[in-house]
């Protein structure tokens, strides 16, 4: 145990130290190679200019390198793989995409993904908005919000254990220790194996993501609500609008762009949803979604990189519009800057 702690400590120091070392070392080297301390000397001025041309790349270098290796290269490679056969040797054109189009499992995954997309972002945003409005009026609202927010800190695996326990099933007649079945039997119903109920099991998996992401929506929307100028609410009140009218005519329009941001953020997350399905059902009982299907084709049962890559591209293309929207927003911000 001690040896392991020491080993861990040593590796950590080495890793972090190496990173510090790079930045200090490279800058020291630059200052050394092109000294600029001599006052008003012509060579000092020239060296300063050389430094100014090199230094940005010293700063950016590691980031650009890592981004290229870990994100840009894989994207390109995946596109390439999706046009090749299972081992990536032979060009097969659109065969992988054609296969996907007719594959039952793929259709099921697409269907499930759409189901998730239709339910989760809407539900999270709606719940988040309601909770944000309700807690805004409470003195203990912040405490309430952080409790709603808490699941965001829990891993998907941890959340899966928590929810497996909620959905736990014992045969009829036995004492139910899963709270959902306990409630159902208390009201005279029959206990169910929730995560294998055809079709509906998807919703029991979605509940987990809603449970996790509502806190995110709440916090963002609560901050947006805070940003609404109070006098517009007071003016509406003087104009004779009731609380509900104030809510949907005055508050919601003013935070509309934030609602959109929350919605799209959760949408991107849902498109990539993977861990919950993996740990809860492992794609069994018709709960597979695209990311899990891709994972299965890549890592399980012989593996077919071509098909896995084709599925990955489908996910990418689905995310693309949001990505473009993001870039455009960032550019606008840039111009406004």
């Amino acid at each position: 145990m001690i040896a392991q702690v020491l080993y861990a400590f040593f590796t950590v120091v080495l890793g972090v130290g190496g990173c510090f070392g790079y930045f200090y070392g490279s800058n020291w080297l630059l200052d050394r190679t092109f000294p600029a301390n001599a006052n008003n000397d012509a060579s000092a001025v020239r060296n300063l200019r050389v430094q100014a041309n090199i230094r940005p790349w010293l700063f950016l270098g590691p980031a650009l390198l890592l981004l290229s290796v870990y994100l840009i290269f894989p994207v390109i490679q995946t596109v390439w793989l999706s046009f090749h056969d299972r081992a990536g040797d032979q060009f097969v054109g659109l065969a992988n995409y054609k296969w996907a189009f007719y594959d039952d499992q793929f259709r099921l995954s697409i269907f499930n993904n759409i189901l998730w997309l239709a339910v989760v972002p809407a539900l999270c945003t709606l719940m988040g908005l309601i909770i944000a409005v309700l807690t805004d009026r409470l003195w203990w609202g912040n405490l309430a919000k952080s409790l709603i927010f808490m699941p965001l800190a829990i891993s998907f695996v941890g959340a899966s254990v928590i929810w497996k326990f909620v959905y736990d099933y014992r045969g009829a007649g036995q004492q139910q220790i899963g709270i959902l079945n306990a409630i159902v039997t208390y009201f005279g119903g029959d206990p169910q194996v929730w995560i294998s109920l055809p079709f509906w099991n998807n919703f029991f998996l979605m509940a987990i993501l809603v449970w996790i992401q509502t806190g995110f929506a709440t916090v963002i929307l609560a901050a947006a609500l805070r940003g609404i100028p109070e006098d517009t609410l007071e003016a509406a009140n003087i104009d004779g609008a009731g609380p509900f009218k104030i809510f949907y005519r005055i508050m919601v329009p003013q935070i509309y762009s934030t609602i959109l941001v929350v919605w799209t953020t959760i949408t991107v997350l849902v498109l990539k949803i993977f861990d919950i399905v993996l740990t809860m059902t492992n794609s069994q009982w018709n709960t597979s979604v695209l990311a899990n299907l891709m994972f299965d084709w890549m890592f399980r049962g012989g593996g077919d990189f071509g098909r896995g890559a084709a599925i990955a591209i489908v996910i990418m293309v689905a995310v693309l519009p949001i990505m473009i929207w993001n870039i455009r927003q960032a550019n606008n911000e840039q111009k406004g800057h």
């Binding site: 100014a52 894989p74 896995g308 993001n326």
Partner: peptide, 28 residues
């Protein structure tokens, strides 16, 4: 800092925000 392609680099980074992580696993 003054550097060429600054706007392009920023745009690429923003675009990379939404790349699904799973797709980089095999190539990596």
């Amino acid at each position: 800092m003054k550097l060429p392609f600054r706007g392009l680099i920023i745009a690429i980074i923003v675009g990379l925000l939404v790349v699904p992580l799973q797709m980089s696993l095999i190539p990596l």
